[in-house]
Every structure is written in structure tokens, then in C-alpha cells.
Design a protein around this nucleic acid. Structure first.
Lengths: 184, 184
DNA sequence: ATTGCCTATGCAACTCGTTGCATAGCAGGA
DNA sequence: TCCTGCTATGCAACGAGTTGCATAGGCAAT
């Protein structure tokens, strides 16, 4: 449903092939929407059939031809219509939270290293976001509309990671406290 | 994959029928894992076949019989094994973020009411969490291990909602600033 | 009296998303 | 030289998740 729209946004920002889109979804767009190349190819074919995007074959030597897609007028209109209709609140799937509650029926100490691993991942992501912010938005007073919107989404990612790091510290303190008071 | 484990945790906390589980997933567990009754019934049947849960038919008058499930030893063991293996980082699907970036190719003002709607939803959720915290964990010094773990997960939810509210205010300010500088 | 909602389970059909594999030439390192 | 990895697309099969509908009696309100 929404993958089409994420692809449209990406193609409006910059036309590209399915492969290039897949890599963008691994990087920037993947911050708030994930997709594999399989999904992307399938949806692109459907979108082309619907006239939402236009494709142009680009022959390359030494490597396979690529189909460069760009957003068509019908796609832009579909995006505008989607913008105006309400979206449901996100459905959350937080596996780590399930594990934390599961730890009550097992040894809480067994979770510590797993939580530490997640903490490292989030710390690395925060560092990447902050670096990207420095690089792409050095002067917050000189941004056009598109950049301001990209920036506010990035700020959301940064705040999410900060919050998550603080929470994971809270979780670690709780697990360690429980492990100390439970000398198996 | 993880739905089994979420169900096991819920059944360890309290045995119940498929229907009861579905309602729990609408309430507390649904904070970090969503599931419809269809999924739950299907998975419960599989788990029963695998010996992870045991079912007992409970006849009721005036309404259909129910099957009350409880976690079996094999289920508890499977949960313990799962606790010890790493989970992948969550895959994020943030539709609102896609919309915000899409607003660059349309009228930013068209998004304001949608963002306000989301803001209200998150504010209501935060209020519910804070109320639940008051009710379930009034004295933070007198909690057993299970309650402490439930509480730390709830604190994560509270912090997430607080962060989201602050970010949505940031988004609204950005959208309004852009709308003001773009007198169509 | 009818309408609508609640308990309780389930089938069937569908879409969404993932995984494994295949092709095919080129570049770089062990 | 072989192995790995990159570009570029795609098929096939599967598993996860959603939606619509069905049954079936009870309760409460209009």
C-alpha cells in the first residue's frame, strides 16, 4: 500500500532504476521504510502498468541494461491524493520488548548481552545520523522546502535514537539489578 | 516467528482462550506487538500441535465453549532458547515520515491537520500509559521481578510517546513555516 | 421488535513480504 | 586461478498478515 508512495517520493527526489531504489531503501529511505529489491521490482512493474511511473531502457556496456524510472503525472496526482487521506497509526512490532517481558520467566542476566548489542547498534545509527546532519544541513537558515522537510524527518530519527539509548540504559540497569538479587 | 513467543509470554503471565488473548493484544501487549484474532487462532493450533501449549475445553452455558490455553514445558523451553539467540533490529515502517517528505512535492499545509490528528492520538496514548503506571506501579520500591520488567517496558512506551509529541510539534512548526512562506 | 454489540471460534481468499536461486559480465584481491 | 563481490533484473515458493464472512446465542438499548 504505502510502498508505492515511498517509491514515488524517492523517484520525485531523483529518478533511478529498481536497483538504485533498492540501495536508497537500504540507506536514507530505509530509516523509515524498509523494502527488499524483490518488492521494489514487483511494485515498479505494477506502477508502470498503472501509469504512475515511466520507464526508460538505458543500455550499458559490460553490465546489464537498466530501466530508469521516473514519476509520471498520474503518480504525482496519486501521491497528492494519498497525502490528503488519513493514515492509520503505525503498527508496532517491538521484539526486544517481548524478550524483556519474557525474561521474567527465565534468567534476566541472559538478556544483558543482547540488550548491549542493540545499544551498540543504536549508538552507531545515532552517530551516522548526526554525521549526515552535519554534512547535509550545515546551515539551518539556508534550506529550501524540500531540505527543511528532509531535515525535520532526520531530527525525528535522531531524537528516536537518543530516546532509545536512554531507555536501553534503563533496561540494562533493571536487568542487572534483578540479576544481582537472584543468585542462582 | 515472534508471535509465538509473544503468545507464550502472555500465557505464562496468565492462561486464557484465543479470544482473551486477542483482547490482550488489543490492550497491553499490543503496545509492542499487534495481532488479529485470526493470526492468534492459527498460531495457537500450531503451538498446540507442537506441544508448546496445552488446551482445556471449558463448556459455558449461553455462549460457545472456549479453549483455555496455558504454556507447556516445551513452550517455556522454546522461549528460553529464543531469549538466548539474537534478534534482528526492528524493521521500521513510518508512514507519516513518508508523507512529510512527500509534502515537498505538494502543499505542506495539506498535511497539518493529519499531523495534528496523530498528535492527539499520541497525547491520548501517553495519558493512558501514565494512568496505567499510576495504577499498576504506584510504589516503585515494592515490585517483584515480573513487575519491574513490565514497568521498564512501560517506561519505554512513555518515553517514546513523549519524544513523538515533541517531534510532531517540531513537524507542525516546520509545516506552518513553509505554508506561510508559500502564498499560493 | 429490531438493531447492534459481545463472546467465541473458524474458513477462504487475498495481499504483503521474505528467501533462495538464477543469469551474466566485470573488477579486485589471495 | 579461484573466489568474492558488484551491477541489474527476475522467477518460484513460502510464510506472515489482513479482510470478509459465517455461526450462534446472549444482552441491552431504541
Amino acid at each position: 500500500m504505502a510502498l508505492e508512495h515511498a517509491i514515488l517520493v524517492s523517484l520525485l527526489e531523483q529518478p533511478g532504476s529498481g536497483y538504485e531504489l533498492a540501495r536508497r531503501f537500504d540507506r536514507s529511505i530505509g530509516r523509515f521504510w524498509t523494502a527488499t529489491h524483490q518488492q521494489i521490482y514487483r511494485v515498479l512493474r505494477r506502477m508502470e502498468a498503472d501509469g504512475w511511473v515511466a520507464a526508460q531502457e538505458v543500455p550499458q556496456d559490460g553490465r546489464p541494461d537498466k530501466k530508469v524510472y521516473s514519476a509520471a503525472e498520474a503518480g504525482r496526482a496519486a501521491l497528492a491524493a494519498w497525502l490528503r487521506e488519513p493514515v492509520e497509526p503505525e503498527t508496532v512490532r517491538h521484539e526486544l520488548a517481548v524478550k524483556i517481558r519474557a525474561a521474567a520467566f527465565d534468567d534476566p542476566a541472559a538478556l544483558v548481552s543482547e540488550v548491549e548489542r542493540h545499544r551498540e547498534g543504536h549508538a552507531a545509527l545515532l552517530a551516522r545520523y548526526l554525521h549526515g546532519e552535519q554534512r547535509d544541513f550545515p546551515d539551518a537558515t539556508a534550506l529550501d522546502a524540500r531540505q527543511q522537510l528532509q531535515h525535520v524527518v532526520l531530527r525525528g530519527g535522531i531524537e528516536y535514537e537518543r530516546m532509545t539509548l536512554a531507555w536501553l540504559d534503563d533496561v540494562l540497569a533493571t536487568l542487572r539489578r534483578l540479576a544481582a538479587n537472584r543468585p542462582t
